[in-house]
């Protein structure tokens, strides 16, 4: 039963991931769809970031004491100013560590 479940999970996961790739030559995307999809990466990533930062422990935490929120705000500022990924990560993680150490 355990293995049937695993195979089922594998089948649906791979199926979802592979179907668009398999049909890539035959699928001609409508120009509107293509324009819409140009927003997909930033929209999905924002939808992952926002709850991770604002709801880190299961409840909305809008407070300067929230280390995730402070790290995110600093990361946004550094990213906007430097456009450098490594600097952004270093600043965000560094501030997160400091905040947890102090508070």
């Amino acid at each position: 039963m355990e293995w049937a479940m695993l195979l089922g999970m594998m089948a649906v996961t791979f199926g979802i991931r592979y179907l668009p790739f398999a049909l890539a030559d035959r699928l001609r995307l409508n120009p509107w769809v293509e324009r819409a999809l140009s927003y997909a990466p930033m929209a999905v990533l924002s939808a992952i970031i926002a709850p991770a930062v604002l709801v880190p422990k299961g409840e909305l935490w809008l407070d300067w004491r929230n280390p995730y929120l402070v790290a995110a705000v600093v990361a946004i500022i550094v990213a906007a100013l430097t456009r450098n990924l490594l600097a952004t990560i270093a600043a965000g993680m560094g501030l997160f560590a400091l905040w947890r150490f102090w508070l």
């Binding site: 927003y39 990533l45 880190p56 952004t88």
Partner: peptide, 25 residues
């Protein structure tokens, strides 16, 4: 887990260069 959040921010933030993208984000 904060590593994931700040990395995604580092990827997304520089792409927000106009108002439609800001609206999407």
């Amino acid at each position: 887990d904060v590593a994931m959040a700040v990395t995604f921010i580092g990827i997304v933030a520089p792409q927000v260069v106009n108002r439609p993208r800001l609206a999407a984000v």
